[in-house]
């Protein structure tokens, strides 16, 4: 399966983005062209402020694109609105820099918020939640609320919430920043399995050079421009 043999999962062409308007406008992304194939696991790096999070939020349809082409898993993100926008977001798994868990919800209930969006008969969803939390080392803590969990455990709950519904595209913003090396490996393995076994496209931002070897692609962003795009071959 070569990236060019079928429709790309992410296709950016000449993408630019600026915060603000007029005199005070500050351009943070410049003419970025990039294409990820289904099942590719790409890691994006770059110095702080280079625009990585901004790029992820554009791909995740959390911001409106301004100029350039932006097509993801069959959707043109220009002018995406209402039910179509919600439907697109539901097919994504977004892991944020901040975990943003509701204090009122247990780990299980937080992850359930994701499966609730994809109703399926029977208890299959709940089984999947338990299996995933267990794989992430939270089997004993499914009924704990965020205040009873460590930072790393909360981060893993948020990761489970982003992955449990088997999204077509995973966008992860420094998902392993709060994790120790053992849990980092577990999460990376999880993402790699999703990409290689289920054909999930993964775009992950990280500064952690220890994890580069898991990726098929290494993309480097500097000052809002694509600096390098290396396909790794084992």
């Amino acid at each position: 399966m070569t990236p060019d043999s079928q429709n790309p999962a992410i296709a950016l062409e000449g993408l630019s983005y600026a915060f603000g308007a007029g005199e005070t406008a500050k351009q943070v992304l410049f003419d970025i062209s990039l294409s990820l194939a289904p099942g590719e696991f790409a890691i994006m790096t770059g110095p702080s402020g280079s625009g990585k999070t901004t790029l992820l939020s554009l791909v995740g349809a959390l911001r409106r694109p301004q100029s350039g082409k932006l097509n993801c898993i069959g959707h043109d993100l220009h002018g995406l609105e209402g039910a179509e926008l919600e439907g697109y977001r539901q097919q994504l798994g977004f892991i944020f820099q901040l975990h943003n868990l509701f204090p009122a919800l247990t780990a299980f209930q937080s992850v359930q918020m994701a499966t609730d969006l994809h109703p399926e008969p029977g208890a299959e969803a709940n089984d999947r939640i338990r299996a995933l939390l267990t794989r992430l080392g939270l089997g004993e803590r499914m009924d704990y609320r965020p205040h009873q969990l460590s930072g790393g455990q909360r981060q893993r709950v948020a990761i489970a919430r982003a992955l449990v519904h088997r999204p077509a595209l995973v966008l992860a913003d420094e998902p392993t920043a709060a994790l120790d090396s053992e849990n980092t490996q577990i999460v990376l393995q999880l993402l790699a399995d999703l990409a290689h076994e289920r054909g999930t496209t993964v775009l992950m931002v990280t500064q952690d050079s220890r994890v580069f070897e898991s990726a098929d692609r290494l993309i480097n962003l500097v000052d809002g421009r694509l600096d390098s795009d290396v396909r790794r071959t084992d």
Partner: peptide
């Protein structure tokens, strides 16, 4: 108090 959490719900595709 839960603005970020509600925003996360919207990012997940909740309307």
């Amino acid at each position: 108090d839960h603005l970020a959490e509600f925003a996360t719900l919207k990012a997940m595709g909740y309307g």
